[in-house]
Design a protein around this nucleic acid. Sequence first.
DNA 1: TCACTAACTGAAAAATATTTTCAACTACAC
DNA 2: GTGTAGTTGAAAATATTTTTCAGTTAGTGA
Lengths: 128, 128
Amino acid sequence: MVGKLRGLGYKATPQRLAVLEALAAEQHQSLEELRGRCPGVGLVTMYRTLDLLSETGLVRRLDLGDGPRYELAEDHHHHMICESCGEVSEFEECPVDTRSLADLGFEVNAHSLEVYGRCAGCVGGERR
Amino acid sequence: MVGKLRGLGYKATPQRLAVLEALAAEQHQSLEELRGRCPGVGLVTMYRTLDLLSETGLVRRLDLGDGPRYELAEDHHHHMICESCGEVSEFEECPVDTRSLADLGFEVNAHSLEVYGRCAGCVGGERR
DNA sequence: TCACTAACTGAAAAATATTTTCAACTACAC
DNA sequence: GTGTAGTTGAAAATATTTTTCAGTTAGTGA
């Protein structure tokens, strides 16, 4: 991580390391959540660092319907979004097979899947 | 569409119909793009309508890294995002099999897949 | 180890984006 | 038609993001 930053000619400052550590704590956090984990980092630097990390591809910004959120760019990442209670959870097992995309000439580096539906709790309780 | 709105107790106003029509013209549009297609609709109403449509599940807001965008909530939708040139395209063939999620008790209604990599043009031209 | 420099930071200000308020308007049920 | 709850748009308020700029610092090379 740090190596990648330096390799691209960027400095590994304490602020950047703090943001990376905050990102590692949990996936899809909001700016405010990240700020809570980086008390020493100024607001402007948060924005700039997240921009920088997004540009280098280390971080991805996404919006699952509740405002911008950030997460470390993993090779593949899977979200399950409950349309009843709004809960966003993650799951490991990968139901995606991107091999067919090679036929379109696209070189696949990573993917992100969002599944919308109703979580076990809402299905069980028949909550609307 | 209109029926669904009315069924939920909402009125089918010309503004809402205009926004729905604008959404139908193209997927993942920004607010400004949608505004361009709805000259008669005020800015506040745009925001309110998109909120309303998102709540009813007709529309989904997403952020692929370049700010919020909106699209009609299709059952499944697949984006291909080129990390070199930033182009976002869509593809039809579905490389996702969500059947395994039933084991987790999750009831799947729809999904959205984002594939990150390099598009045919960038791979061919070796553009960085 | 030290000095140099390009890169970086934070506070304030500016610019943008989004939400709230409220009086006037309208779709639609009766 | 009439009544009314729901809807709209303009202005104001608020929130979010970006820019500016003077001061600081990581990392390089001597």
